[in-house]
Write a protein that binds this DNA or RNA. Structure first.
Lengths: 133, 133
DNA sequence: CATAATGATACTCTTATAGTATCATAAAGA
DNA sequence: TCTTTATGATACTATAAGAGTATCATTATG
């Protein structure tokens, strides 16, 4: 079981790298060099971040990507929502049929509590908070 | 992303049902009736619980399963370890190659903290704690 | 010996994750 | 306008975990 998948992980690193570079615009190739990750994979991630409004892109010579949102406003949860399947820690279903006992299931209550706390903590991890050394 | 998978979930329910029944021995068929889950799937789970030492089994007429460990000593984490892939919330690897920056990765540090807390909380959920109404 | 139970095992199906590859398009600059 | 340098769109494969099924072997009871 993984909380953070590679998509999300790479997205964070790419965004981090764009901020650190202190350039207006950073190309995919520069990011590949700095981050040592597969070009095609990273390119797709950047395209998605662009579509989702976290990056602005520009084509042609001197083109590349720039942050569209301030680092303090990008959280790990935002990226997980974009790149990962929804967080449902305990679904209580069998073949799409919800467990009949779901309302007073003591296990679900406890798991739900844990889920809430995890989400709160992931919300608190902003891109900015990862930059501080 | 799921924290608890169906295997684990069903294992908990089955154990819970064995305790609640207050019988010495409960057969797979009785559990299937009470829990409304697929027979083959449940049978396999019971066999694994037996192998792992959480249940004792007896064959033949009047046979079935009985708890081998007290409900206070069985935790959700125990069952997750049996039925789920290891909990590694953030692996920082690319194609088996560990990320070179792993030692001072600020993201990893934060995710690790969350992981530790989640595990502590799951350890605190014993079978017994789920029985109290 | 028949029946009622578990043991062992092998199989399929689906989904999420992980990654690759290719062609189209647009901007910059000579 | 043509070449280069960049991203856009999209389609494809591979792997692993999870979810579930099915069958035959074995053992205990009466």
């Amino acid at each position: 079981m993984k909380l953070i998948t590679r998509n999300t992980d790479y997205a964070i690193r790419a965004l981090w790298c764009i901020v650190e570079s202190k350039k207006e615009v950073v190309s995919a190739d520069q990011l590949v060099k700095n981050l040592d990750m597969p070009r095609s994979f990273l390119r797709r991630i950047l395209q998605i971040l662009n579509k989702e409004g976290l990056l602005n892109s520009s084509k042609g010579k001197g083109g590349g990507f720039a942050l569209a949102v301030s680092p303090g406003k990008i959280t790990v949860i935002d990226l997980m929502k974009i790149f990962q399947s929804p967080i449902k820690l305990n679904e209580c279903t069998f073949k799409k049929k919800v467990c009949p006992n779901i309302k007073n299931c003591p296990l679900k209550k406890k798991i739900d509590e844990i889920e809430k706390e995890v989400i709160l903590k992931l919300k608190a991890i902003t891109l900015e908070s990862l930059l501080i050394k």
